[in-house]
Amino acid sequence: MAEDVKPTRKNLMEIEDRIELSERGHDTLEQKRDGLIMEFMDILDQAQDVRSGLSDDYERAQHKINMARAMEGDVAVRGAAAALKEYPEITTQSKNIMGVVVPQIESSRVKKSIDQRGYGLLGSSARIDEAADAYEELLESIILAAEVETAMKKMLHEIETTKRRVNALEFKVLPDLYEGQEYIEQKLEEQEREEIFRMKKIKAKKEEEEKEAKEADKAAAKEPGTATAD
């Protein structure tokens, strides 16, 4: 991998910049992951409470409706249920927990007063009221559970993503960058050494040539008298 990089000083500077950025990103992401985990633990506690409450509410509502169906008859319960067409209204907004956008579900018209349930008060009974009450509470619990559990799932997904990014930086990106940096540094040092060696060689050769030239000049200076005598 590192061999793919051209061992130039420019590339070394680029790698050093990327290492600095990656290290900073790694620290930040690690902090984010830890923060998310802490937030997640809080939401997890809340989700567990909501789940257990939801389970209790469901049991209670089921018992109440069974009693109402037993004592008032299935026809009466179905009739009371058919007396209302209006659905509860649910609006979703979003809030940000450490960069994770989680839903905030607002519900209205879930809990109704006795005169808003559609069926007449004069001909109905407390059993139907209590079954309706229990189901309204169950619906509110379901809405709360939907909010908390969606937040939990989104947080979990974000933690996974952040963890993968931290691991990728820690075990892949940074080691590769370090390796690349080391490779380029080694190559540059090697090139430097080769350059110094070459320079020394050139210098030695030059000195050799200079020496030879000097000796040749000296020899030439001694030769002229011999030539005159001839």
Partner: peptide, 16 residues
């Protein structure tokens, strides 16, 4: 109002 409450109450009241 769009809800059945007044009609249902009227029927039961008439009976009683």
């Amino acid at each position: 109002s769009g809800v059945l409450v007044p009609l249902e109450n009227a029927v039961d009241r008439a009976f009683y």
